[in-house]
Computed example of a mutant assay.
Amino acid sequence: MARKFRFAGSGLSDLESAGSAQTRGLHSMETICERLADGSLRHSEIRHIFEQLAVEGRRRIDAFVFELLFRNRMRAIAQEHAGLTLSFGWHIGYDGAGNSAYWFRLIDEEDGWNACDEALLSHLAIQVQRSGIAIHVFRVMFRPDTNGFVSSERVSGAWRPERELAEALADLTPPGTWRPPRSMDHMDTAMAYTAFDWMSKYPLLLSWLPALSIQRRLMNCILSPALGRDPTDIDMMVLSPAGQLRCVEFKRKYPASGSQSFGLDLHPHVNTVRMMDSMGIAPLHILLVAPRWQKNESPLHWLDDRALNTSWTWLAASLGGEDAFLGPPLKTHGWDSGQRNASRQQFSISWSKIRRLHEGLKLGDEGGRRMVEFLTAGDLPAAPPATFHYLSARRLDR
């Protein structure tokens, strides 16, 4: 979808224009959603996208950039190695009982409906038969001409005619479910615009931002208010050459020094892992560990430091089975609790599940082959295991 947009500008002058939010204070998420809806903020203008993303959590913008880099690297790897089918844009919504009852696939010219999506439909149909809980599946499209989202629901094996997504969501949820868009609690204007300053140097990265802007609007302004709770976005679905389905979560992170383990939030991530595993979909986790374990620095600038390139570490974890989370329970709260100011319960990933995928920031041919092997087989049993001490020894900031 990014190809359809022509930026009004992407240089520092636009950054400075967007940065006026630093002097007048950040908008609330509700205000951003209203301005996106009335067209005063547009997905085609980079300074508007910066203003929109600035209200995300203090470290979310860094995370978005790494996710975009990961997604586009995976696209390139899939093109180089025939047989893998990738799907991006899936979002899971929850009903009042907490069931994963609503599934939305945001599609565009770059990420159209494919065989991987059809395989997921088959798994969802089996899940309905097993659980007896109704599941609603929607294909969602953004229409630039109307500045809005339309959807088509899958019913009895066929797609219904398109209609506005807001109308479809209103029919799904009981009266009183809707809530105003929720602002993030841990916004940091200076950190946001430091990231934007870095992003402005890379035209290719900027070309990916309109699609991200649309996806974040869907999450924060449409699905979350209509469903009355935050949805979950799936980083990547993969269909192997043998027809096996994988669900992939990607994170740039490092292990907690106290517990000496990687934590994964109970909601939504561990719950999603367990749900996928119960559906026969292998839950996979890919981690990119930086050579600096610092929370108060933007990791984007480390990407420009060639001296650090060989010290990044790619890890692969297969999280299926009851032994995936055997480490000590974790909790984070307050300023260290992500974009929502709440206590988060986390589970520790068992080190026995984590393998070394590749050493070095750039995957290259070797790393690409290992990635394909992991996505195809769902595991890397022959790869050496990762340990806290192995990763700690690769740190360069102590």
Rank of each mutant, 00 (worst) to 15 (best):
D171M: 09
L209Q: 11
I77V: 15
W302Q: 14
F7V: 02
V137G: 03
P268Q: 15
H48T: 03
S298K: 02
M1Q: 06
H81K: 11
L357C: 12
H267A: 11
L223W: 13
I107F: 05
M184Q: 05
L172P: 02
A125F: 01
A211Y: 07
L284P: 10
L41T: 01
R3G: 14
L12M: 06
E45F: 06
R306K: 14
W293Y: 05
L204T: 08
A2P: 09
E110L: 09
P328S: 12
S350D: 15
A168V: 08
K295C: 07
D235M: 12
S131Y: 03
D235G: 13
A170W: 12
K353I: 05
R306E: 10
Q294N: 12
R130D: 14
T387C: 03
V248R: 00
T313A: 14
Q215C: 02
H81Y: 09
P255M: 11
L380A: 08
R292P: 01
S213Q: 09
L120R: 06
V273H: 12
T189D: 04
M29N: 03
T310L: 08
G360E: 08
L121M: 12
F142D: 06
D38G: 04
M236L: 14
F5Q: 00
A8Y: 04
K201F: 02
R216Y: 01
P283V: 08
N309M: 13
D185A: 14
A307G: 15
W335G: 02
S207I: 02
